[in-house]
Amino acid sequence: MNFSLGSYLKRLRSIIIGILIISILPALLFGTNTQVEQNVWEYSIKNLKYPLFPDVFEKYQYSMTIFFAALFTGLAVALILTFLTTLLPRFLQRVTYGLLTFLESLPDLFIVVVLQFTVIYIYQSTGVLVANISNVYNNPIYLLPILTLSILPAIQLFKIALLLMKDEQHKPYVTVGRAMGLSRFYITIVHVFRNILTSLVQYYKTIFVFMLSNLFIVEYVFNLNGIMNVLLNTKGVAFMVTALMIAIPFSLLFEIAESNTIKLNKQEEEEAA
């Protein structure tokens, strides 16, 4: 574990200044009278006003549950699929890669809507409700949002892992392992996978930022009472507080990951030198 409080505080300061600028920007550009007059600690959805505290903690917890569950599902699916593809013949591996490029370009909105319809269609034709497709009052849904949110990161991680795998398989230690009579299966699981995981961590930023943006669309389309829905409907100070609630823990995560990957890279350089 490698973490310096000083550089984190520096990053935090710039995040707070940035969010402050963003939250006063609408009033600055279009005049203060465009901001609907409402109590500072309130947010409004469809002209109904709700108090921000203490509701927001519950919503926050709900959103984060979905977010991390989706992240881990996506990661697990990606790793399993990567492993299975390495067992395929080379020609099928190329087909998989091409297919991934296509799947990657599907917009998140498309996937959300299509999944929703698939569930409805299955319900209509067989009478089996696989999962609830929309949030009903006080009855949060988990399965479908997690599934939807995990698809795109899974595809991205799968693609990255496949590329890394390709690089890794030509490294000397794999050849040595083969020469020692270890099976391809064993080398992939024990040695190659461990190395891929450490390289995969370096892509955390792209994945996290991408997933936060997806989380918003998922929450909006499934009508979930999550943190992003609150963020969308708040203004001014309340917006700032909600945004900081998202930014502070994630920036802490980024800081830890960043300082550790830098350390990792340095180690590799030293080894190479």
Partner: peptide, 25 residues
Amino acid sequence: DIVQATLYLPTAILAYILMNSLIMK
């Protein structure tokens, strides 16, 4: 600073709060 902050806010929300104010105006 703004770039650091926008990492955690979806662009759609950012555009929405600006557009909404514009429509109000």
